[in-house]
Simulated scan of single mutants.
Amino acid sequence: MILNIPTILTLFRIASIPVIMVIFYLPIEEPRLWCALIFIVASITDWFDGFLARKLNLQTAFGEFLDPVADKLMVVVVLVLIVQADPAIYIAIPVAIIIGREISVASLREWMAEVGQRSVVKVSWIGKYKTGFQMVSIVCLLFNADLYGIPVRMLGVVLIYISVVLTLWSMWQYIQLALPQFRK
């Protein structure tokens, strides 16, 4: 395992997960604000580690494995926290769809790698937009309050539904790309 700056940033994202979990439940003032801020910093490292890895030619097999794992762990754990704190069906359904898609696409990518077709299911631009909408919606739902008259929570609900549409669209694209292998 090679520890370079991009890999350290990815490990930071993983380390931020238990920190967010603990702060979420701490009896402190504004715990959800602190969680949202930590999530924002961790999300920025997701973009930054990939940029640095490509720009400085620091890509490693370990980093390529760890980066999507860190992203999925962070998103899934925080989504579970959000649903646990607000178990409304209109939040639980999109969260279940997002988590189901993450598991399905990760499994599809693993299977495609096993049959030597990993490059067929590379991340698409829709997947990148999905991630962007998802991260912003999670920040809004984590924060869960109005900010200077802006209904941040409602914005989070709208954005999570947009991310669900993009989630299903990108999953459909991956399935279409894998169909030739399914037919063999």
Rank of each mutant, 00 (worst) to 15 (best):
Leu26Asn: 03
Ile28Met: 15
Glu30Trp: 07
Arg32Asn: 15
Arg32Tyr: 12
Arg32Asp: 12
Leu33His: 13
Cys35Val: 07
Leu37Gly: 13
Ile38Asp: 11
Ala42Trp: 02
Ala42Asn: 05
Ile44His: 08
Ile44Trp: 11
Ile44Ser: 12
Thr45Cys: 03
Thr45Glu: 00
Thr45Ile: 02
Asp46Cys: 06
Asp46Thr: 08
Trp47Asn: 13
Trp47Thr: 12
Gly50Pro: 08
Gly50Lys: 09
Gly50Ser: 09
Gly50Trp: 07
Arg54His: 03
Arg54Val: 03
Lys55Thr: 15
Asn57Tyr: 05
Thr60Asn: 04
Thr60Glu: 03
Thr60Phe: 02
Phe62Trp: 11
Phe62Ile: 06
Asp67Arg: 02
Ala70Leu: 01
Lys72Ser: 13
Leu73Ser: 13
Val76Gln: 13
Val77Cys: 04
Val77Gln: 01
Val78Thr: 09
Leu79His: 02
Leu79Ser: 02
Leu81Ser: 04
Ile82Tyr: 00
Gln84Glu: 13
Gln84Met: 14
Ala85Glu: 12
Pro87Ile: 00
Ile89Leu: 14
Ile91Ala: 05
Ile91Pro: 02
Ala92Cys: 10
Ala92Gln: 12
Ile93Met: 12
Val95Glu: 00
Val95Gly: 00
Val95Lys: 03
Ala96Glu: 04
Ala96Asp: 10
Ile98Asn: 03
Ile99Asp: 08
Gly100Trp: 02
Ser104Asn: 05
Ser104His: 08
Ser104Gly: 12
Val105Leu: 05
Val105Ala: 08
Ala106Gly: 15
Ala106Cys: 13
Arg109Tyr: 04
Glu110Ile: 11
Trp111His: 10
Trp111Ser: 14
Met112Glu: 10
Ala113Gln: 15
Glu114Val: 01
Glu114Cys: 04
Gly116Thr: 01
Val120Gln: 09
Val123Gly: 02
Ser124Gln: 07
Ser124His: 05
Trp125Met: 15
Gly127Glu: 07
Lys128Ile: 12
Tyr129Val: 14
Gly132Ser: 04
Val136Met: 15
Ser137Asn: 11
Cys140Leu: 07
Cys140Pro: 01
Leu141Lys: 06
Leu142Glu: 01
Asn144Phe: 10
Ala145Gln: 15
